[in-house]
Design a binder for these strands. Structure first.
Length: 340
DNA sequence: ACAATTTGACCACT
DNA sequence: AGTGGTCAAATTGT
């Protein structure tokens, strides 16, 4: 228990430092020395936190199932807690529902295990009627007032659901604490974008085009007009903007996998010049709770200029869940194809 | 006319 | 019974 408290303290400390750094980085008069010190502190804080987690895991686990959490510069392992069964395919439930219109079966509650969240911030003062463009075409199919939430939750499915059978869906929930932040929960994989190669390795490095555009959400515009590829390319051409924001890492509403570990070399891929995910542009910003990631407090997002619509925030991450492996204990994410 | 969104109703789950 | 997720008819936009 003491360790958990310390862990939380450390992570909170990291959060605070990161916030300070964010402020400093926006103040041109601050010295490089100050930045260096802050960055060192942040790294140190997170490393300490990770050590604590590792210690705890060593105590709780036998040697055989031991998984090391990475240092800040090493391999990223995402710990995910209690899970629905992993035996089912990511889309099995949805598939049954949509293409079997037997109403008894089709109305079955979606127990889709694969889902992940993003926290997106839009510029205050801009239209924020909904999420920004994330490179995919979504059609809204519902909206619901959620108990305890100030803002309704929007339900979206892939526009190509009927034509291509793409079963990806997302839910968009505006944050109560910070109305400029949208929490987007993606469920299922885009089968339509496998063909169109939305997260293509051929796009330019988004780090080269991160300067400018402010998010300009246009709730009435349509994101259904362009194929995802073209949209993303357009986004990259016209400039992207990175926003770093604080995540509520204590939010533990998502339980996608279970007590397993997602292991991936995110960090090293982030340094790779060839890495181009229009979705997250190399900066970790998705979270899988309850312990979102080793960077629990920070979410960075590439905010593309708004080409669309309805409610989609920014370029989204296409997450190739078919590259997960589950061996009964660990959930491994093979990201070589994803990041290459 | 067609496509997208809105919204009340329905259903499954807890 | 309460809640979240989805459906589908009605409405709105292009």
């Amino acid at each position: 228990m003491g360790d958990s408290k310390n862990l939380i303290d450390e992570l909170l400390h990291g959060l605070e430092l990161a916030r300070q750094l964010q402020i400093y980085l926006n103040v041109s008069s601050s010295s490089n020395e100050t930045r260096e010190i802050l960055i060192q502190k942040i790294i140190s804080t997170f490393e300490k936190a990770l050590e604590m987690v590792n210690r705890k895991r060593h105590v709780n686990m036998g040697e055989s199932s031991k998984q090391q959490y990475p240092s800040a510069s090493g391999t990223l392992a995402i710990r995910i807690s209690d899970s629905p069964p992993l035996s089912c395919s990511p889309r099995s439930e949805d598939s049954d529902r949509d293409f079997n219109r037997d109403h008894n079966a089709s109305r079955k509650r979606n127990t889709l295990p694969i889902r992940w969240t993003k926290h997106i911030r839009v510029e205050p003062g801009m239209a924020m009627e909904g999420p920004l463009d994330d490179g995919y075409s979504w059609r809204k199919y519902g909206q619901k007032d959620i108990l305890g939430a100030m803002h309704p939750r929007g339900y979206y499915r892939c526009t190509h659901r009927n034509v291509l059978g793409c079963l990806a869906t997302k839910q968009v929930q505006r944050s109560d604490e910070d109305p400029t932040i949208f929490e987007i929960t993606y469920r299922g994989n885009h089968t339509c974008t496998i063909a169109s190669n939305v997260v293509g390795p051929t796009l330019n490095n988004p780090f080269q085009t991160q300067e400018t555009n402010i998010v300009n959400t246009n709730p009435q515009s349509l994101d259904q007009q362009k194929p995802p590829n073209e949209q993303l390319l357009n986004n990259l051409r016209t400039g992207l903007r990175v926003q770093t924001e604080n995540l509520d890492f204590q939010n533990q509403s998502f339980v996608p996998f279970g007590n397993h570990v997602l292991e991936s070399s995110f960090a090293e891929n982030f340094n790779s010049p060839s890495y181009v995910s229009p979705a997250n542009s190399g900066i970790s910003h998705f979270s899988m709770s309850p312990t979102p990631s080793v960077f629990p407090n920070m979410a960075s997002e590439i905010i593309p200029p708004a080409t669309s619509a309805a409610n989609t925030p920014t370029a989204s991450m296409e997450f190739p869940f078919d590259q997960f492996e589950f061996d009964g204990q660990n959930f491994t994410f093979h990201n070589s194809r994803f990041f290459s």
